[in-house]
Each structure stands twice: as structure tokens, then as C-alpha cells.
Simulated assay, not measured.
Amino acid sequence: MLRIHFTGQDLGLTRVAAGPVPMWETMLSLHSLRQQNQGLVPARWRRSVGPKLPRSTGLLTALVPTRGYFPDFLTPADPLYDLDEGLDAVLSTPRARLRRDLSLLAGGRRLPPWTRSLADGEPDAVTLLGRAVRGYHEAAIAPYWERIRAQVDHERLRVSTPMLGGGTEALLSALPPCLRWRRPVLEADYPVDRDLRLDGRGLLLIPSFFCWRTSITLLHHDRTPVLVYPVQHRLLEEGPAAQGRSSLAKLLGPTRAAVLEAAEGRCTTGELAQRVGILISSASQHATVLRNAGLLTSTRVSNTVVHSLTPLGSQLLYRGSVPLTLAEPGR
């Protein structure tokens, strides 16, 4: 678990990123590229991008393992919303930081020989990294960028709305179930046990499409600390997908079908109600019917109930439909 400790000053300085951050989405997508257990959304994306990936992608997978630490310098602390700016910041990393981050990475695994040249800041190695990032981004991220942006924008609106009436603590309370606000600490599901003390620097929250299940933060916080967390993925309804949703609504009823769709990606009863636009009591009743039908599972976490699709629910939801996601462009 990650525990993020706030002061009153930190609450005043906490904010949400203005949109998806290209370097974070690019690097985190390398996890989805190789992990097979993240669900239907990344599986469809993998099938779509796999044949298009440049050979240089292997350079990036050497730097970004499927689990554990990857170099901080690949995701600059300052939120840069343009790929060129983000890549320029990466390629301008001081040699001391390159050596620090790559030494930490090498401590847990064996690195290819070219990374020694990168750690020394040799121009050829730095140029090689830049070309690899750009080639991978063009093949795997750029074709889906507007869809990624739409999902991140939806999440920004979802968490910002409570903040208008309740301030930063209301925003923190509206974050997904993997994040829990227990004043003055924000608890986050995390692969290791760690404490992060903000000490008056505030926190930058970065909703991310390619962040899955648990949040991510930098090991070194030279500026404002950041916390990257997963958006709640939704489905795109167009073409054949719209027909599939129409059939599902006829089968289950429009509200219950909407509840089933809203449960994609795990959410609480309150989040179900918010997504569908119904009362919490109504959302609970519909979830009970869907659970009894074998389409949802419900798990109690502290004082809340978290719902998720069963394999049967996923099959019913996705039959004849296309995840928002990362369906291949133009299809």
C-alpha cells in the first residue's frame, strides 16, 4: 500500500492534470502490450497494434519491465501534454539522472549493452531512444489518442464535479476504489509498502488510460509529487456497437443494461448510480438482479461494495460491440 500524507497546504495545492500525458500513456502502454490478464480492452488493442509495431519497440521493453520500477526520467515530473515537449524533456535528462535511474533499473535485472551508452548520455544512444519512443508512439498510441483523451476528460469531469461543492477533500473522496481518502492520508493500492509525505508541495493527480488496477508514482519527486491512477473505462457506441447496445437494452431493459455497462472496470454502488444517473438505492437493486443472474460479482471493501463483471457479463456486454477503447481505427 502507498500512503500519501497531506497537510492543509497540500490540499490547497492538489490538482488534476489538464489531460492525458503522452509520455505516461506511452510508457504504461508497454505494460499492456505484454500483460495478458488486464481484460478485454487492452486485449483488443494488442491485437490491433501488434502487427504494426516497429522493431525498435524492443529497446523500450528493455527499459520498462512488466512489473516494478522503470526509470523516472522516461516520465518527466512536469505534466507536458505534447509529445514533442515530453520527448525533448526525456532526451535532455542530465547525465547524473540517467545514471541514477538506469543503475536502479539494473539492480533488479540485466540490461542490454546499449543502455550503458545511454547512461553516459552518449548522443547516439539518446537519439536511438528518441526514435524508438516516437516510432512506438506513432504505431501504438497516436491512432487512438482522441479516444484516450475522451476517456481521460470524462474522468477529469467526474472527479472535478464534487470538488466544486466540497473542495479538494471531495475530489479525493471521488477517486476510484483503488484510492481511499482517510484524512489526512490518501491510501492507494500499490505493489510495495511505502509512505509519501507531500510536505507542502501538493499532489498532481494524472488520470491515465493505460494505468491498470493500481496507481503509480515516481520514485524521486524533484518537483510536485505525482500520482497516476486508472480511469474507469467506458464503451464506444457506434455502428455495430450501437446495434449491440440496443439489443442488450431490449433484453435487460435500458436502465439495467446501462448498469451492466457501467460496471465494466470495477466500481462502487455509488459510482454505478453516478454513471447511470439513478438513485443509489435503484443502482443497488439493479446490481442485485444482475448478480443473481450471474452477470456481476459484488465484493465488500471496508464500508463499500465493489461490483465487477463476471466472464458471462463480459461476454454479454461485448457481444456485437466494440470497446472504446482501442478498437482499430476506422472499424
Rank of each mutant, 00 (worst) to 15 (best):
A96Y: 13
V152W: 00
L129R: 07
R149Q: 15
L157Y: 08
A150V: 10
P113A: 06
G121H: 10
G135H: 07
G130Q: 01
E155L: 01
P143W: 15
L118P: 04
S103I: 00
R149D: 14
A150I: 09
P113W: 10
E146P: 08
A140D: 06
P143C: 13
G107L: 03
L102K: 12
D124Q: 06
G108Y: 07
D101N: 11
A132H: 10
R95C: 09
S117E: 15
D120R: 00
D120Q: 00
R134G: 01
W145E: 02
V126L: 03
D124A: 01
L157V: 10
E138C: 12
L157A: 15
P143D: 02
L98M: 03
T93H: 06
A142L: 07
D101A: 09
V152H: 00
P94D: 10
L118R: 06
E155G: 01
R109F: 14
A125G: 02
P123L: 05
V133A: 09
R109H: 09
L111K: 11
A96H: 13
P112Y: 09
E155W: 02
D153F: 05
Q151R: 08
A106Q: 02
R156K: 02
A106C: 01
S103M: 01
P94G: 03
R147M: 13
E146F: 11
T115C: 04
E146Y: 04
R110S: 15
R97T: 15
D120G: 00
G108F: 11
A150Q: 10
L105G: 08
G130V: 08
A96G: 13
E155N: 04
L118T: 10
R110F: 14
E122M: 04
R99D: 14
G130C: 05
R147T: 15
A96M: 12
H154Y: 11
V126D: 02
L129G: 06
A150Y: 09
A96L: 13
L105W: 03
D153N: 12
R149H: 11
P143Q: 08
R149T: 14
D120P: 00
A150N: 04
S117T: 07
R110L: 14
T93A: 08
L104H: 09
A106G: 07
T127C: 12
A132R: 06
Y144F: 15
A106H: 03
D101I: 05
L98Q: 04
R110Q: 14
L118A: 06
D120C: 00
Y144H: 13
W114P: 03
R147G: 12
P94Y: 07
I141N: 09
G135A: 14
L128Q: 04
Y144K: 04
G107I: 03
A96D: 15
R97A: 14
L105N: 02
I148G: 11
D120M: 00
A132E: 07
R97P: 08
P112R: 12
V152C: 05
Y136V: 13
L118K: 09
E122V: 07
R110H: 14
A119Y: 01
R99P: 02
L105A: 12
L128F: 02
L105P: 05
L102D: 09
E122A: 10
